[in-house]
Structure formats: structure tokens, C-alpha cells
């Protein structure tokens, strides 16, 4: 009889790790339309000369439970999705909607004017409008033909 000197990781953790690893492998082979978001929420980023628009799907989160902050070219979205308040005697048939705290930072392609950042909330989708700093806007250079 022998004793293990270390704790064996739970089997399921191992299986999950394997699954993640496999997914990552598969993803690197097949072209995908979308990139996998590293964490909640998934974001789409739109760019123009005027600035950026970021959209994210955050269903079930109240606008007051979301914090958005911009420091130079780093945008941070954090907040919490609260679980549904239910009586003790309810019976769950299905529970797929996650909840909990989240925080995510994203590096913007250029510095934005933090004073002019606006965020709107509609049907569980947040839209953040980030205008580019005036002094950082690209200057158009005219080509003079001689």
C-alpha cells in the first residue's frame, strides 16, 4: 500500500482543461468569423477617423450595475450580473444563464477624449462612443503635383 503525496486534481477539471486545449487547437486550424472573447462581455469594436464605437451584449444587467472607465487608451468595463431573486421552494429545470462579477479591459488603438465618452444602453446592448482626441486625429496631407 502506498500513499500519494499530492492531491489528485478532480477528474473533471482535467477533462475541461483538455477540452479547452482541443478547442484552441481546432480554432487555430479553421478560420472563424469571430474571435473568441477572452472573458465576458464579448465586444465589437468599430473604428473611424473620428473615433471608436464599442458594443457589448450585457443582457440582464441594469445600467447602474455597470462601470465604464477610460484612462488614456485603456477602456475598462466592469460590473455584476445579479442572480434572479427567487423563493426558496422553487425548482430549477434549467439554469444556463450565468451570473457574477465581471471586469474586462481593452486596449484601444488610439487615445480617446475621456470627457466626451458616451455610453448608451438599449435592450441589453451597451454602446460606447469614444471620440478620438482632437490633437491625435490624422492630418490629411495634400499631395501637390508639380
Amino acid at each position: 500500500m502506498y500513499y500519494r503525496r499530492y492531491r489528485v486534481p478532480p477528474v473533471w477539471q482535467e477533462v475541461e482543461r483538455l477540452q479547452r486545449e482541443m478547442n484552441r487547437l481546432m480554432e487555430s486550424f479553421s478560420p472563424r468569423r469571430v474571435q473568441t472573447a477572452p472573458s465576458f462581455p464579448a465586444m465589437n469594436l468599430w473604428v473611424s477617423e473620428e473615433g471608436l464605437i464599442i458594443t457589448a451584449e450585457v443582457p440582464g444587467i441594469k445600467p447602474e450595475d455597470i462601470d465604464i472607465s477610460v484612462v488614456n487608451d485603456l477602456l475598462t468595463i466592469s460590473g455584476e450580473r445579479l442572480p434572479e431573486q427567487v423563493d426558496e421552494n422553487v425548482r430549477y429545470h434549467r439554469r444556463e444563464r450565468g451570473c457574477g462579477k465581471f471586469a474586462r479591459s481593452i486596449q484601444l488603438p488610439f487615445a480617446v477624449d475621456a470627457n466626451k465618452v458616451e455610453a448608451s444602453f438599449e435592450n441589453g446592448v451597451i454602446t460606447i462612443n469614444l471620440p478620438r482626441k482632437e490633437e491625435e486625429k490624422p492630418k490629411k496631407i495634400k499631395v501637390v503635383a508639380k
Binding site: R33, V34, Q35, T36, A37, A42, M43, N44, L45, W46, V47, S48, E50, I53, E57, P109
Partner: peptide, 14 residues
């Protein structure tokens, strides 16, 4: 909804 005059630079969800 696609914002006018903006180009999609990063897409994490459809």
C-alpha cells in the same frame, strides 16, 4: 446595427 462610416475592427460576437 452598423454605425455609419465606421469599419469593424474587432468582432467578438455576431
Amino acid at each position: 446595427k452598423e454605425p455609419e462610416n465606421y469599419a469593424l475592427a474587432l468582432q467578438e460576437y455576431e
